[in-house]
Design a protein around this nucleic acid. Structure first.
Length: 493
RNA sequence: GGCGCGUUAUCCAAGAGGCUAGGAGCCGGUCUGCAAAACCGUUAACGUCGGUUCGAAUCCGACACGCGCCUCCA
């Protein structure tokens, strides 16, 4: 099997063939830095993170570019509101973005360019477009003339007439066609500006991505990604700019991730139904959020809700608990005698051996099918079950069973590396989850320990009534007692 | 209005002509003084109506419902 990806441009899954064998150039639209990132940004970040990781895993030498758009109307507006300058606003939210993405465990892209560091490249493309008759100057602004580019709207599969039918496009005097868009905007007093052949001004939205992708990846490159909402107008306009300026294909494979929904509706600023990443991370572990995102295919919509996050956490806990059990066992000394001759293996051991031998192949098959992480997680879960079964049956550890379990552990580490999971020592992670939940109760650990001690006494005296009373009392406060042969511990439900 | 996507069991969610997806839950078991937790086992589904086919969740058509883009958006 080979990697197949869904290409928005053709509307089909296609065999992935890079421009240069063994190498991949990938550009993903980052963010406009004027506010904190929300869960939608988290999804886009995580989705393209695992695409990046998987391409690396598959042996490609990947150049991954993810930009910051650090000059834009919204940034200027924000700066004006605060009585500061655009640079202060942009730098603040670049830093916030970096913090959020780091917490989500994203690998750093190869390059993370800023639009304002590429004004020269931007101006060069605009000049080329004007020279070729695709753009025109109008009162200090420069506009792209969409009618000069026959392929316009090929990505979103529309045509100019349909777009205008129900369109809410203002017909400005400055534009020749209502769909024309700004490449360069003349600056008003007090606004940031750069010197250009058309006077003082700043780039429009879209052109920065054409400039930065060309700078780092060339005129034609393999993968361009972003959220579905960028298909029109952003990516459509990028195509128009780059292909008209360079006279060659811009991007070979267009990949777009689906939205994050709240109650089956798109999360968006205008609807006011969004959660920032930092808000959510106050309540949920970052890896839980990542796991939640990976539990659905990247192109499908995903519904953000407490129930779904709780379920994600349960699932991830199940995996981590298995890993913790594995680690625990692997840290023990195996028996010297190797009783388990292959012919004498138990059915469970045989099944585990069989599963492990297929594991990598099945994982790759899932990921090769348009990065189907949800299916890959299913394979991990199946392996967890068989490992648990083996663990429950295995008495003493023999060198042979130990090698099987070590193999399982290595496979989890390997595939976890692709999915960005299992980055924490399992016992530590489980402990952290427990501690996080403990913050929600209104009882001190001392009080709890005191009651547990009383209950131990009562049970020793066969006063089960009192013992159960204490148990119920604690449970009512969300504290769950865990009795074991080693004694009683507790956690928060 | 134009263009596109989706509908899988109680819930979340893969799959895309014949092959156990998976998770959470329910139920049963192991454990326990009884429970809980943990682990194991188990259950059930393809929106409606037609069509193609030996065979349809899967392909085709119609319909219903939901959603998205067409304004800034990941």
């Amino acid at each position: 099997m080979a990697l197949r990806v869904y290409n928005t441009l053709t509307g089909e899954k296609e065999l992935f063939v890079p421009l240069t064998p063994g190498k991949v150039g990938m550009y993903v639209c980052g963010v406009t830095v004027y506010d904190y990132c929300h869960i939608g940004h988290a999804r886009a970040g995580v989705v393209f993170d695992i695409i990046f990781r998987y391409l690396n895993y598959a042996g490609y030498d990947v150049t991954y570019v993810r930009n910051y758009t650090d000059i834009d109307d919204k940034i200027i507006n924000r700066a004006n509101q605060e009585g500061t300058d655009y640079r202060t606003v942009a730098d603040r939210y670049i830093q916030a973005f970096d913090e959020d993405m780091a917490r989500l465990g994203l690998a750093r892209p190869t390059v993370e360019p800023k639009a304002t560091d590429h004004i020269g490249g931007i101006i060069a493309i605009i000049e080329a477009l004007i020279a070729k008759g695709h753009a025109y100057v109008s009162e200090g602004d420069v506009y792209y003339a969409v009618e000069t580019f026959p392929d316009y709207l090929k990505l979103s599969g529309r045509n100019l007439e349909d777009m205008q039918a129900g369109a809410r496009v203002e017909v400005g005097d400055k534009k020749r066609h209502p769909m024309d868009f700004a490449l360069w905007k003349g600056s008003k007093p007090g606004e940031p500006w750069w010197q250009s052949p058309w006077g003082e001004g700043r780039p429009g939205w879209h052109i920065e991505c054409s400039a930065m992708s060309m700078e780092f990846l060339g005129k034609t490159f393999d993968i361009h990604g972003g959220g579905k909402d960028l298909v029109f107008p952003h990516h459509e306009n990028e195509i128009a700019q780059s292909e008209a300026a360079n006279g060659c294909q811009f991007v070979r494979y267009w990949l777009h991730n689906g939205f994050v929904n709240i109650n089956a509706e798109k999360m968006s600023k205008s609807l006011g139904n969004f959660f920032t990443i930092r808000e959510v991370l106050q309540q949920y572990d970052p890896e839980t959020l990542r796991f939640f995102i990976l539990s659905a295919h990247y192109r499908s919509p995903i519904d953000f809700s407490d129930q779904n996050l709780e379920e994600a956490q349960s699932g991830l806990e199940r995996m981590y608990a298995c890993l913790a059990a594995l680690d625990d066992l692997l840290n023990r000394e195996p028996l010297a005698v190797d009783s388990a001759l292959p012919g004498g293996l138990s059915p469970v051991a045989l099944e585990l051996q069989e599963r492990l031998s297929q594991f990598r192949h099945r994982f790759v098959e899932a990921m090769d099918d348009d990065f189907n992480a949800a299916q890959a997680l299913g394979i991990l879960f199946e392996t967890v079950r068989i490992v648990n079964r083996f663990l429950a049956e295995a008495g003493d550890v023999t060198p042979f069973s130990r090698s099987l379990l070590a193999q399982a552990r290595d496979l989890f580490t390997e595939t976890g590396g692709v999915l960005g999971l299992f980055t924490t020592a399992p016992a530590l992670w489980l402990e952290r989850i427990k501690a996080g939940k403990a913050c929600r109760i209104d009882m001190s650990p001392e009080e709890i320990e005191g009651l547990i001690a009383e209950r131990v006494e009562a049970r020793r005296a066969k006063n089960f009534k009192r013992g159960d009373e204490i148990r119920d009392l604690l449970l009512a406060k969300g504290i769950q007692l865990l009795d074991s042969s080693q004694g009683t511990t507790w956690n928060v439900k």
